[in-house]
Design a binder for these strands. Structure first.
Lengths: 203, 203
DNA sequence: GCTTTCCTGGACTCGACGGTCCAGAAAATT
DNA sequence: AATTTTCTGGACCGTCGAGTCCAGGAAAGC
């Protein structure tokens, strides 16, 4: 009564293989036979590890990809304590989504495993964590007197997150990162004090 | 050699019926038999009017819905010439997407008929028109000295559009309009002159 | 070493769904 | 009224893909 090391490895191989395939094609076109072919497994194994079938597998992939989304923005996202850090984060986001072009795992998941119970939870968690990082970043800047303390960190974090999400969506549709960059730049700009737009120097 | 009035009506009935169904369910679950059932038509008619099959039908629905998106924001979106008009537009957007909750036609289309040739064009056109309205609105405000003429209208329009798109996406996922409202409010706020945050009075 | 549990492979079922076909009704055209 | 075109209904087909089943191989436990 337990799971062997070999079993764990196979399960992991399935999830990662499916994730890779999902990154290269439209979601919804993914078939279990695709997964079989890519990961070198059999139907038996698929249903052995994911008794809930395709939906359970997709949800596992969703969790896997959700983790990657924030990881790819680290270490910048976790330490937004200077204007330079914000700049690096902004560049990392643009670079990441430019690179992946038409396929945002989050977007794919949002569009695909939408109405299931656990799926909404995965998305909510991801968005919540993302926004939390941004909010704490803004608060850190406020604590350092580089951002007006009267500014509502929660609102700005929410707006910034929305801008990034929308920018990525437009990027996926049109291939241009113009909106993403505009949303990021103006969103960050809005944090700077209105009087001295350059703000205190960054060591 | 021509199309009869009856034919036109049937075609329209098919498109609208499919659109209604698409608004109430996940896209991708739509089957031709669903459309048949809803619109009271037969397979023969479906392929008579849409020889390209499901894809052509979906594309027709996409165009139909894309028109609705901007129409629903009128007349506000077409005349953003005062702060009050911006406010009305903002309220209209929030109300519209709150009401439709989990199903944004644009979002559905983005996620569904993604990779086809004409689909990208529909989305690009819609986004382009939307952004154009916003840009002209900002320029109109600049012409009236209510917005700093040095401000880059194109960039702000792009960022605002991204914020709306992302806000709607979050709304679809979490059910909360917090992000959408934050993105709209802060995006519009960013247009106001920094010195006099209240701006000239609105007659 | 023997038993029990876990792991793997693949053949098979079965339903769903897109798409085809054609015959006949309804309009339009002459 | 005859004829041609368009419209409509529905039976039919082929495929594809999710999920089942079970038999045999590998580990783990005793």
């Amino acid at each position: 009564m337990g799971i062997t090391t070999k079993g764990r490895a196979t399960r992991q191989r399935i999830v990662e293989g499916a994730a890779v395939h999902l990154r290269g094609t439209e979601p919804g076109t993914l078939t279990l036979d695709d997964v079989r072919a890519i990961t070198g497994t059999s139907k038996g194994q698929l249903f052995h590890y994911f008794p809930g079938g395709k939906e359970e597998l997709l949800l596992a992939v969703a969790r896997f990809e959700a983790d990657r989304v924030l990881d790819d923005q680290q270490p910048h996202l976790g330490a937004l304590t200077s204007w330079a850090a914000w700049r690096r984060w902004r560049d990392a986001v643009v670079a990441r989504y430019r690179a992946q072009g038409a396929h945002c795992p989050l977007g794919s998941l949002l569009g695909q495993v939408h109405s299931t119970p656990g799926a909404a939870e995965v998305v909510s968690t991801l968005l919540g964590q993302w926004e939390g990082h941004l909010r704490r970043g803004i608060e850190a800047m406020q604590a350092r007197d580089q951002v007006d303390p009267a500014l509502d960190a929660g609102r700005h974090a929410a707006a910034l997150l929305a801008g990034v999400q929308g920018g990525v969506q437009v990027l996926r549709s049109t291939g241009s990162s113009r909106h993403l960059e505009a949303a990021l730049d103006l969103g960050i700009e809005a944090l700077r004090p209105p009087r001295t737009r350059e703000g205190p120097a960054d060591p």
